[in-house]
Design a protein around this nucleic acid. Structure first.
Lengths: 112, 112
DNA sequence: TTCCTTGCCATAGTCTAACTATGGAACGAG
DNA sequence: CTCGTTCCATAGTTAGACTATGGCAAGGAA
């Protein structure tokens, strides 16, 4: 059961995964997010650092998250990201959009 | 119930929709494909010409389809696209990939 | 000590693919 | 004849994920 990496997380979906993860598990730093997503997807989705951090930068600019430097349990410096109100709203938007689009695609590809 | 247009069909999925449509409805020209996808998605997915034709060009290059000029019922010239063996194989690949990835995404976004 | 692994952040440059905008040609209807 | 529809196609832009690469700090291993 190979992992899915390159090209296989549909662009845009990464936002949804991050937003959801933050909404569930409170302020997290990047490393935790990547691990969390990987775990809750049962090791299928693997978020590369080169995808994650640029996405977080874009989300900062969009105002979906705020960031604050802190220290981890392991005594390392880390940047903690937290959902804003706009981020929560965006999550709801993307969730319903995802359901809608996914349903539509399924209708097409399940036609007999 | 607004239609979904720009940015909302996850990139890459267009291939899947086209491959599936061709596998069901035999050789089709572009216009028919767009209509077929729109109908079978219950008007949710709308494929723009500026997305469809470039995608078909790429699929020709990849060898997933072949094209042949013909004449429509309405007596217009049209280019009929047909799945190749490679295209059928690609469809199977993308179908299973799609199920796998979207299943994983669902797991993440449905976490309580 | 020195080294190596792990945790953690970040950017530059590349690539895919969908979008906008635009063009054209042929046909039927009014 | 003009207009809307059918049908094809490309150029240029944009978004976003990827590869590759860099750095720095903590802690254990040699």
């Amino acid at each position: 059961m190979p992992m899915i990496k390159r090209d296989e997380i549909p662009p845009g979906t990464l936002y949804l995964l991050i937003l959801k993860t933050l909404s569930l598990h409170g302020p997290l730093h990047g490393y935790e997010m990547a691990n969390s997503i990987q775990q809750s997807s049962e090791n299928i989705l693997q978020v590369e650092e080169g995808s994650l951090y640029p996405a977080l930068q874009r989300m900062l600019i969009k105002g979906w998250v705020t960031a604050e430097w802190g220290v981890t349990a392991g005594n390392r410096r880390a940047r903690y990201y937290k959902l804003t109100a706009a981020g929560r709203k965006q999550l709801q938007t993307e969730l319903s959009q995802f359901g809608r689009v996914f349903g539509a695609i399924n209708r097409v590809i399940q036609m007999a």
